[in-house]
Simulated scan of single mutants.
Amino acid sequence: MCSASAQFAVAAVLGSGGGPVAAIAAAVLLNARFGPMGLAVGPYLKGGRLRRALEGQTVIDTSWALASRGGGRFDREFMIGASVPQIVAWVGGTAVGVLGGDLVGDPERLGLDAIFPAFFLVLLVGEIRNGGSALVVAVLAAVLALLLVPVAPPGVPVIAACVAALLGLRRTF
């Protein structure tokens, strides 16, 4: 429901002249993270299929990370409680943006373009704090993306970094 990274990646790819295939590929690869996240939190969701599907909508990056208790354990109630205000803010902010976006003009003028990269950088720092393979994968994906930016079409650097990260992390399991 709330995949800001995929939404911003699609907007960035299309806004910089990339095609719909690159935009869709970027979104699919960025959203691939929800597979392992869902598998990790799945045993902590309650009820039948419908209830579990509804509770699964609260698997948002921040809520999932905050609800993690270590050792593969999750606090379901905390995750749901942390997700509800985010979902309300996301939907409300989207409505405000659609209805009043022309009043603000260029979001870069207000520095809003830096919010999501900074947010994901903070999440990344939390994941790589202890070093190990996650740090190596993150550095390699970043270097790959930076090397491709000047020579590859829009969207390709993001896709390549996502594929590299997924392949690198797959080896850690």
Rank of each mutant, 00 (worst) to 15 (best):
G42E: 15
T62N: 11
G93F: 03
D113V: 08
R49E: 11
F116R: 11
A114I: 12
F74C: 04
F120R: 02
G93H: 02
G126T: 10
W64M: 10
R109W: 10
G42Y: 15
L112E: 05
A82R: 04
F119V: 01
L50I: 15
V104C: 07
D75R: 08
A118T: 05
G93A: 02
R73H: 09
E108A: 15
R109E: 04
L123C: 04
S63H: 06
A89V: 07
G47M: 03
V91F: 14
I60T: 06
R76N: 00
Q86D: 12
A67Q: 08
L99G: 03
D75C: 10
A89M: 13
D61C: 08
G131W: 02
F120H: 09
F74K: 00
R109P: 07
G47W: 09
L110C: 06
L123Q: 03
P117F: 04
V91C: 09
W64C: 04
G131H: 01
L50V: 15
D75I: 03
V88W: 13
R129Y: 08
A53E: 13
F119C: 00
G48N: 06
S63N: 09
Q86Y: 12
E55M: 10
A67S: 15
F119E: 00
R109D: 05
S68N: 15
R73I: 01
A118V: 06
D61T: 00
F78W: 15
A89N: 08
G71Q: 07
P43D: 03
D61P: 05
M79K: 05
R51S: 09
G42I: 11
A95N: 01
A95V: 12
G92K: 02
G100I: 07
L112I: 05
